[in-house]
Computed example of a mutant assay.
Amino acid sequence: MSIEANKALVERYYHELVSGQRVDLIEELIAEDAADETRVGPGGSGTREDFREHLRWLWENVQDVKATVEDLVAEDDRVIAFWRIEGVHVGPVFGVPATGRPFTGYSISTLTVQDGKVTRYNVLPDRLGIIQQLVPAVV
């Protein structure tokens, strides 16, 4: 696939799957033996079920979740996504119990795409930036 096709797939991943909660797209967008490194660790092997678990966790803990791709950089089979997440904190996130507070967070993800499907996913979220919005500062 071309770099532009890979970038379009990643855009769909965030817009239609994550934000749109279109779990029916998992088979179309994610390879059967894909590795969600948030679940299996860097370099680990996995399955689509790892992606389902990750998304279920997200949708259960962040109400009205919206993921917006701000920029994409791609080379060969890799796409780097700079993206923003917005939502309401209704379950445990990064060790913080539900607060009911809205938040905005920024992340950088690396997605590997082969034969038109994501085969590997890793994300580096700004955990501190999110936690600072969820937990009021103690003065």
Results as ranks from 00 to 15, higher is better:
V10A: 07
T110P: 00
V123Q: 14
R120M: 05
V73F: 09
I3W: 10
W83V: 12
L55N: 09
Q21D: 13
L25V: 03
A74I: 03
L134P: 00
I85T: 13
T110C: 03
D36K: 05
A8P: 08
V62I: 15
D115A: 11
V73Q: 10
S2Q: 07
Y121V: 01
L111F: 03
E11V: 09
G91H: 08
T119A: 00
F103I: 12
A35G: 06
L128V: 12
W83P: 01
P92K: 14
E70N: 15
Y121R: 06
V69C: 08
V96Y: 06
G20A: 01
M1G: 11
A8L: 04
V139Q: 15
T112L: 14
V88L: 06
R84P: 10
D115R: 13
T119G: 00
V73S: 10
G100H: 07
N122V: 12
L124F: 14
P97F: 03
S19C: 04
S45C: 07
A34F: 07
E16A: 11
W59K: 00
H54F: 14
P97G: 02
V139I: 07
W57E: 08
A98N: 07
L124D: 15
P42Y: 12
L111D: 00
Y121F: 15
I130H: 01
A67Y: 10
V96D: 12
P136E: 02
R56K: 15
I108F: 09
F82R: 14
T38W: 06
K66G: 04
G20S: 08
P42D: 13
W83T: 03
V93P: 01
E16H: 07
A67L: 04
H15M: 09
D36E: 09
E27A: 15
K117T: 01
W59S: 02
Y106H: 14
E28H: 06
Y14D: 14
V10E: 05
E75A: 10
S109A: 13
D76G: 14
E86W: 04
V69Y: 01
E75L: 10
L29W: 00
L55A: 11
I3M: 15
A98M: 07
W59C: 00
W83M: 07
E70F: 07
V93F: 08
G95M: 01
R56H: 15
W83I: 02
H89P: 00
V93A: 00
E86Y: 06
R52E: 13
I131H: 13
P125G: 09
K66V: 14
V118N: 00
V62F: 11
S109G: 04
A8S: 14
V23K: 11
K66I: 09
A35R: 06
L111E: 01
I130M: 03
R12Q: 11
G105W: 03
V23Y: 05
E28T: 11
A67C: 12
I131Y: 09
G43E: 09
E16S: 10
A8I: 06
F51W: 14
N6C: 10
P42A: 15
E11M: 11
Q133Y: 08
D24K: 12
E4K: 08
H89G: 00
V90W: 03
E60L: 13
A81V: 03
D77E: 13
Y13Q: 01
L134H: 04
E70T: 05
V138E: 13
F82S: 10
A98H: 05
K7I: 01
I80H: 13
D126T: 11
H89N: 01
F94D: 08
H54D: 05
K7W: 03
R39S: 15
